[in-house]
Amino acid sequence: MKPVAFKYLKPATVEEATAFLAEYGSEAKILAGGQSMMPMLSMRIARPSVLVDINEIAELTYIRAADDAVAIGSVTRQRRLGDDDLVAEQVPVLASALKCMSHPQIQNRGTVVGSICHGDPAAELPAVAIALGAELTACSQAGTRTIPVAEFYRGYYRNILEPDELVSEVNFPAMLPGCGWSVVEISRRHGDLALAGVASLVAFAGEEIDHVRIACFGLGKAAHRLVDAESLLKGQRTSSELFQEVASLVSSSVKPMDDSHASAEYRRALAAELTQRSLFEAIERAKQGAAS
């Protein structure tokens, strides 16, 4: 349980960090909060020869308003999602996600962007980011590009980042006025990674569902959107028949895996149940929002 030896680099700026990544390329790994990377190093699942520690890059710690969005720098700790006024006002679903996530002792160090980049299929933040339509900003010496989180993952713990790129920010679009939200999951103990979970956003125009985004986690190789389920709901009035139809569609369309925690079959059953619970909760919040 000790990491293999590596060269430790501590850039003070994004420019220095991208210079290191340009120099060492795929030999290097980025260390942000380290709440997933450190166990991987200790168990020697990850054996980089160079570690680029971004924790002391002061310019990457922020939560600030952007154009109709909330921008979060990549060294911002997860814990801040729970006590930030801008988050509470514009993207309250993130504070709900935090309640499902790990323990405060982990959130004090773990970063928002790190969780999204790590892309654990059972983690909450990737799914919530996808539901919100969030985008990552990736920097390298060649320049900067924007990547929607929905297009970021390529299977199990894989993403489309180039070895010389550093994600400097995630940008969460502000939720629509009157938009209800929900993050629900089943885990063995509170704070554990989810066996399965569903995040949803719902807004109404009159009695009909006008805007709906559903994303799931723990139900495939990476968090992903449930576009077909969204199509069934859009423009419809709510009814228990409709929810059951959506739930069975989700259950049959997801591709969960068997592992030591739960069987794929059980996860499919959870998918149906959690989809309904998540929609109920989001709709309840949307209606409360409309009434207030």
């Binding site: 349980m1 430790y8 501590k10 260390l31 380290g34 709440q35 450190m38 166990p39 200790s42 168990m43 520690d53 814990r79 323990h103 405060p104 002792q105 982990i106 004090n108 160090r109």
Partner: peptide
């Protein structure tokens, strides 16, 4: 690997896992 919590310390006043931090 950060699960048990027995190595928890206060890092700049906040509880964190000492096994998930590098000495450097």
């Amino acid at each position: 690997h950060g699960v048990c919590g027995s190595c928890t310390i206060l890092f700049d006043g906040e509880p964190m896992r000492a096994c998930l931090l590098l000495a450097v």
